[in-house]
Amino acid sequence: MKPEELLELLKHALGGLAKEVTVRKGYVEVLVDADSVVPVANKLKELGFDHVKSVTATDYPKESKIRVTYHVSSYLREDLAKPILGLSVDLPRDNPVMESLTGVWRSSEFQEREVYEFFGVTFRGHPDLRPLLLIPELAERRVLRKDFVVKEESIYEGVPHRYQ
């Protein structure tokens, strides 16, 4: 299925739920509001998008928002397996809370835990929300946000491994 066809399909299926649907270089992104993410996810699942490939968050400190993106695709419908669809939600940076999509897509469970520990996004309704990869002390630091700065030096000076 070509991106343009998918775009038509999505516009038809989602109707007014989507805030914005964009296609750029073969990558289709649907931007929705935080409170309409579950209905949209359910609609997408009805269309045939049956698993989540990746749950990503990106931090935009300037705009003071965190954008959480679910990349979904299909295994059971071969024509939908070709495109990857991004389902994005913009959350406020100081209190990022959204509904968990584990009820819709089980495959997002571990990656939502990852986003939780790296960005501090809380997923309401997640069955087991606790850090996945990091030790608890580090998980509190929200390490993938832009204000956690990692020093980068071209010449080695001392042991720069303690972060304040």
Binding site: L138, R141, V143, V150, E153, Y156, P160, H161
Partner: peptide, 14 residues
Amino acid sequence: LDGGLFYNSYNIVR
């Protein structure tokens, strides 16, 4: 030895 490629990673120890 000294962190290698990950010398400035926040999650490693020597």
